[in-house]
Structure formats: C-alpha cells, structure tokens
Amino acid sequence: MKDLSGAQTVIEAKGVGLVFETGDGPLQALKDISLTIERGEFVSFIGPSGCGKTTLLRAIAALEYPNEGTLTVNGMPPDKARQSRAYGYVFQAAGLYPWRTIAGNVQLPLEIMGFSRAERAERVARVLKLVDLDGFGKKFPWQLSGGMQQRASIARALAFDADILLMDEPFGALDEIVRDRLNEELLKLWAATSKTIGFVTHSIPEAVYLSTKIVVMSPRPGRITDVIESTLPRERPLDIRDSAEFLEIAHRVREGLRAGHAYD
C-alpha cells in the first residue's frame, strides 16, 4: 500500500455510506465519505452531534458496517483488521471493570488474546509506565480519579501493541484542566509510540492542538465538509494555542463547521 511519496496508507475510505434502520425509517448516518489516513498521522474528526463522526470511527473499528463504498484498514476489510489486532479502541467512559484491579483491567485484552502470564505482566508494567500510572496497578478503579481511570483505559488499548489507536471523545467527560494535561500527555505518547491515531471530538481547540489532519464533518446526512492539514510543528507545547497559526487553523475549522450548517 505504498504511494509515490513513500507514505503508507493505513485507513482508506472510498464513497462510504451507512444507513441505520430506525423506527422512523432509514437514517443516512454517513454519505459519500472518502478519506485516506497515512501511517503515523493524528487525525481528528470534528463536527456537531449527529454528523456521524463516531459512526465513522466505529465503522473503521468494524463495530458498524457500511452499506456502500469500500473501507479498508491496513489494506483489509475492517473485521479482518480487527481480528489481526489492528487497533485499540478508547471509549468516552473508561469502562474499567470494578472487580478487577487497574493491572487486571489493562491485561484483560491480553488474557482474551492468549498472551502468556509472563508477557502479560511485562506489557502491563510497560503501558502503565507509558500513561504515567506505574505503581497504581494494584489499585481498584474506584480508588482513582476520572482522569487516571481514562489513562488506564488508554493503557488497556495500548497493551497489545496495535498500530492504530481509535479514540471516541476520550476526554469528553473530564474537566478542562485534566483534559489539557491529558492532551499534552497524549501527544507525548503519540511521539513515543508513532501510532496512527483517530480521534473524535467536538472541541475545536482540542482538535487543532492534537492533530496533523482535521476532518470537519456536518450532519444530515453525515459527510465530510473539509479536510485540513495542520501546519503546526509536531512538537507542541500547550502555549502554542495562543499562536497566530493555531488561531488561523481554528478559524478554518470553525468556518468548515459553519459551512456544514448552511445546508440546514
């Protein structure tokens, strides 16, 4: 899957459409989505609720199945990619099992995927360190703050070394101060692991701060209105958010969102 520039295509959508059968008749959740994501990119999906950003992420994860077009992950159909452990998924809520310790929660996918006991222990220790939770393995989820629980759930998604990390508004339920810190840590993590990240959000600053590519979407039917390649450097301190360049990109995202709404 190499193109001329030598970049590797990880996720490719061509004319993807998805219809939900609801009680009120069919609902066009996604329409004519075409998108290419290269290895190592940090891609944000932003848009108002109902624009299909979560549905698109779920389709990539083979949690939903498109009705039209083609969607490939690592050159495979999404369910094949899932079976080959292509991605780790982080949900809006941490969803840790209260009856397992933090280490127990992080090794849940490893148990299911049949890793040996020794390898599980080694991997759990490594990813807990990666999300800055070493020493918390023996704690139970209720003993941790919301932000720490979400970090544990990211560790769980990283534990089996998938190349792709899909995140569905992972920090949406956290307060802004914690969210800033986790955004900063997520960028460090991304730099350290060189994973491809798909990130759903409805926060413009979050999308601009994190992403190398911002996909702006609009509702009814869910479609892409703009794809913005970020010109910000990969190294991003928090105060980059006050730079003119940052504000310019944020402005373009806002314009894209507004354009989407003009159809209403």
Binding site: L63, R82, Y89, F91, Q92, G95, W99, L108, E111, I112
Partner: peptide, 26 residues
C-alpha cells in the same frame, strides 16, 4: 459500550459471558 469493548478484542460469546456478564450479574 462494555460489550463493544470486548467486540474490539474479537472476544467470543463464552469469553464475554465469563469475563463480563457473569461478574456484572453478581
């Protein structure tokens, strides 16, 4: 969401039962 999480691991129904449904039902 918890069921979807196990789907992302391609967990079997038996796995889902033992790891999630049974403990949740206690």
């Amino acid at each position: 969401m918890q069921l979807d999480l196990l789907r992302t691991y391609s967990a079997s129904r038996a796995r889902t039962f033992w790891q999630l449904r049974l403990p949740s039902s206690v």
